[in-house]
Design a protein around this nucleic acid. Structure first.
Length: 253
DNA sequence: GTTGAGCGTT
């Protein structure tokens, strides 16, 4: 029972979802399971993680089989100190399908036969309750700075974020002890991106050489235009040869 | 090795 959420929704039809807030970013489903399982039958535990970084968002969803057990867990585990932080357990107000649910009761996703008359008007809710919060995913302004930044860099480019870990399965020891792997792969793939193709200037405006930097550009002010292009280079710091970096002679590997 | 209001995936 350690693979919660890894295979998607198992069998939620009459389960009751509990929202666990204020958990540490290192707390995993395996850590919450023994806690919640003591108060009832836990069907599934899911911790939303960041798509890119893969780190926990700080909250989890615990699905119970019976509402009475879920209610009990809320009363027992709510405010309980987990991993150094007081968690907040409460019934989920919204289902996995972004639908309003009552008392954490998950309205199972209807069969492919969407033709369920009287079920609900398509294009209705969904955005209705989302409207209460413009910034839906904006959980941390501290992270927003790099979220937006990162998103601009990988806009429409990243999609196999999960494949990187798909090769090797996660070890049981993936508790908070080794929860640091997210940082490694994060900066690892970020660094390889820079050194992957050496220099890549897809945009014309990016083709400006380092000499165009503000500090260096001052020397090239109109008053110094009398200096010949070559003299300028000789006068300034001589740029390293391109071939020295192996850019042009980049024989694969 | 970071952050801290909130509602979710194969």
């Amino acid at each position: 029972m350690s693979h919660f959420g890894r295979s998607g929704p198992p069998d939620i039809r009459d389960t009751f979802s509990l929202l666990v807030l204020n958990i540490t970013f290192r707390t995993t489903a395996d850590d919450l399971f023994p806690l919640f399982d003591k108060y009832g039958k836990v069907v599934d535990i899911f911790i939303p993680r960041d798509r890119r970084t893969g780190d926990s968002r700080g909250f989890a969803f615990v699905r119970y089989k019976y509402a009475e057990e879920a209610q009990r867990a809320v009363e027992k585990l709510d405010g309980r100190n987990v991993d150094g932080r007081d968690i907040m357990v409460q019934f989920a107000k919204y289902g996995p399908n972004a639908e309003p649910i009552q008392k954490g009761r998950v309205v199972e996703t209807f069969p492919k036969t969407k033709g369920r008359p009287g079920s609900r008007s398509p294009g209705r809710n969904r955005d209705d309750y989302r409207g209460r919060a413009s910034s839906r995913r904006s959980r941390s302004r501290s992270r927003d700075r790099y979220d937006r930044h990162d998103r601009d860099r990988y806009r429409g480019r990243e999609r196999d974020y999960r494949h990187r870990s798909g090769s090797h399965s996660l070890s049981p020891d993936y508790s908070r002890g080794h929860g640091r792997s997210r940082y490694d792969e994060d900066r690892r793939r970020s660094r390889s991106r820079s050194r992957s193709l050496g220099r890549r200037s897809p945009s014309p405006h990016m083709s400006k050489s380092p000499d165009e930097s503000p500090g260096r550009r001052r020397e090239r002010s109109p008053a110094s235009k009398s200096i010949s292009p070559r003299g300028r280079r000789a006068d300034s710091r001589s740029p390293p040869p391109c071939n020295s970096d192996g850019v042009f002679f980049s024989s694969n590997n």
